[in-house]
Design a protein around this nucleic acid. Structure first.
Lengths: 229, 229
DNA sequence: GCAAAAGTGTTGAACTTACACCCATGT
DNA sequence: ACATGGGTGTAAGTTCAACACTTTTGC
């Protein structure tokens, strides 16, 4: 290490992850009741510290796996929270991430271990430090992002119906959409594979199930296509 | 500090800033020839380390001021570069920012002090560490951002002509634009104040100068307006 | 008088929005 | 038979893209 480096102050580097989920009730946030100091007993985002042998993305994956037992969730960097006094108990710099999780893949046992609980997006309890600000930022990013990237599918089961997909977008954007126009737009991109099966849980008639064709999407992207809802 | 914290490894936290400029020749990047180790003598982005009493944005402002002598430049966080081996000389985590600078405000003396030099965007020399990756990322972000935010004006003199503005967008986006459509679109937002004066440097006829009306923009944004080029 | 850049409108195509009824099924 | 959510098409309005000529002025 060069001398110039050794004169610098090192910092504790953490990450916090805003985990979104979606179910019949709408858009949800996964929070943990802290079983450790500081702020033990309060609601907070899941987080962790960066370790020597990993980069920040790996740390985020690790922390996410630790909580949920799942790997390869959609994960996106938000921004660095670095105010000197943001943590009541010492100087910690935190990189915020948000993740999208299919709630039907969840392992409830695993979640209980960390006292984790889903909260409706408009019923979020008071959070420690600047976590509420992080959540607001993540939500804003999700709202922007979901219009131009096919990330909504990360929140739905692998097989889903068009009405379900529409409800998801309505929950994220907080607005109502016209079902004819929504169908037209989403199907016109020709990225959804219609299956034979129907999902009968939502109605007597039942709605056809679809699958997102990721390979086709990747191919089209290479050709200059852009996703839009 | 709680015990849990003191068990963690601290890291050196730096920042690097991709500084864009624009002049008659097109879009430019401001680089420094490193007068210090590691990689002394090689071209690199301007950077610095986070200090104890500041947050990362303040650090970025400070570093930017140190190089250019200017304050309050447009500055946006990009992403964290945290690979364990990214710096050849020790573990340094770096937050990348990009900044937009009006080249007509530059202080050449100041820039010379740091051996700083402007490079055309398609003539960037080899850079140290992962700085080239940072530049690519910044450029991609700038291209996306300039279509939906009025950040182009941060690269032009306070008074500018429509053809100048168009050339700026063409330089950023790397495509040609139709001047009638461009004018129509940009003027239809009604955010540019036409001045009496003409700039005669670009042609015999001369082109009218305009000013961006930031107050009006802020007002409109509050009313749900969105900027688009 | 000519070269060089500034400035100006129209038309067709594509896309967006608004809107109302029939269908299939379980009870 | 009826209640519930699933599924479908069209017309008007808006936005976008393509395109060519006139103006001003310094030389």
């Amino acid at each position: 290490m060069v001398e110039y480096y050794s004169q610098q102050t090192p910092f504790l580097l953490a990450l916090d992850v805003i985990i979104f989920g979606f179910d019949e009730e709408g858009l949800k946030l996964l929070l943990i009741k802290r079983g450790f100091k500081p702020c033990k007993g309060q609601w907070s985002l899941m987080g962790g510290f960066l370790k020597e042998d990993e980069d920040m993305e790996q740390a985020a994956d690790r922390v996410l796996h630790q909580l949920t037992g799942l790997s390869d969730l959609y994960l996106e960097q938000l921004r660095l929270y670095s105010k000197p006094d943001r943590d009541s108990d010492g100087r910690v710099i935190s990189m915020a991430y948000y993740a999208l999780m299919k709630t039907d893949h969840q392992d409830s046992k695993q979640l209980e271990k960390h006292n984790a609980q889903w909260f409706k997006i408009d019923e979020i309890p008071e959070l420690v430090f600047d976590h509420r600000e992080m959540v607001n930022h993540a939500l804003a990013r999700l709202r922007r992002r979901c219009k131009t990237q096919p990330i909504g599918f990360e929140l739905l089961p692998d097989k889903f119906t068009i009405p379900q997909l529409q409800k998801l977008y309505e929950a994220i954007l907080g607005i109502e959409l016209d079902k004819r126009n929504f169908r037209k737009k989403i199907l016109s991109m020709d990225l959804l594979q219609k299956l034979e099966e129907k999902d009968k849980s939502g109605s007597r008639k039942g709605a056809f199930l679809y699958q997102f064709d990721k390979e086709k999407y990747d191919r089209l992207i290479g050709e200059g296509f852009s996703f839009a809802v």
